[in-house]
Nucleic acid binder design. Structure first.
Lengths: 175, 175
DNA sequence: GCCTGATAGTTCACCAGCGAACTATTAGCC
DNA sequence: GGCTAATAGTTCGCTGGTGAACTATCAGGC
């Protein structure tokens, strides 16, 4: 895992040099988006390294947590796909893996036999309650650089950004 | 591309339900890190969809841009690896792909024949100057929700966060 | 000069995720 | 009731990225 500091510095320099040749480049925005991706990537890698001992990656983990947090502990692959930003293909594989470990179960829906019902098992619940707490301290540590006010401000701006880019992303808007 | 709004809402709800069962969970931090990853992911997907017509993904693009922005237009794979947060394996493949399109060239360093010198070609420079400007408007649009002050604040906090998690990520610190 | 260890890249085998094609089921419509 | 279109999942083949093993080169001690 490379240290971020030199990367951030190199990025500022590199972007600056490009801007000299292409002056219309929006430097602040480039720096923002790059730093955002860099930071998210570092957090993700750190998180997945914590999940690795449990044999999970972030997608598996999120899938399991969505079932854990659902009202009745069940959901269809399709629902999970949209919530987890996954394609059906991948959700099939994830469900296979989790089912193989008996963390979730598979069944066909009675009212619509096309649908599959994934449900977290008691073993799955025990697994979550056991593995979750150790993840908290590093997470707290990650944001320990923020004062309460800064944390609030950051969350507010981040949420604003998330909801703003929301409608921009989708290219296929032809009805 | 799914819309982010319902995802954000669902996340807030889901995390809330988990917190009822596991009260020691640091809810604000969980929301922060999730929203950060979600936003960065959406921006990345949007960006890569713009790169696709040029036959590049973000890694290819960053590699090419690092060469473009370097002082003399050249660098070794190792340098690019550390700056682009890539493993050597992947950099080999990226360099192969870019070299095949004559956007960069390959040569052995004279002073250390282990090293390889990657250099952006004139065609590569033309390619960059042509493809770069169309990327700017969508990028500006992405952050158009921010006032100048908000943008500054966001960048400041993001940079603070990036530099803070920097030393936390690395697990192998045994000398 | 020569052996040992370190370093720079590459190759190989694998995993995670995706698009396209396919299957099974359901809904709508005549 | 039977045909058509739409929907939910799965399978298959491919791309992007990784760790482990390997090759080639260099550096340092002797």
């Amino acid at each position: 895992m490379p240290s971020l500091k030199p990367l951030v510095d190199a990025m500022y320099e590199g972007v600056g040099r490009v801007a000299q040749r292409i002056p219309e480049m929006p430097v602040p925005e480039v720096l923002l988006v790059r730093m955002l991706m860099m930071t998210a990537g570092a957090l993700l890698r750190g998180f997945e390294s914590q999940l690795k001992p449990y044999g999970l990656n972030d997608s598996d983990f999120r899938t399991l947590m969505m079932l854990y947090s659902s009202e009745d502990g069940s959901a269809s692959p399709g629902e999970l796909c949209s919530l987890a930003e996954q394609k059906p293909t991948n959700m099939t594989r994830i469900a296979n893996a989790l089912a193989k470990r008996d963390l979730i179960s598979r069944a066909h829906a009675t009212h619509d036999r096309r649908q599959v019902v994934l449900r977290i098992t008691p073993a799955g619940r025990r697994f979550v309650t056991k593995m979750l707490p150790p993840l908290f301290p590093p997470l707290l540590q990650s944001f320990a650089c923020f004062s309460p006010n800064e944390r609030k401000t950051f969350e507010r701006l981040l949420k604003k950004l998330a909801l703003h880019i929301d409608p921009l992303v989708d290219p296929d808007v032809s009805p």
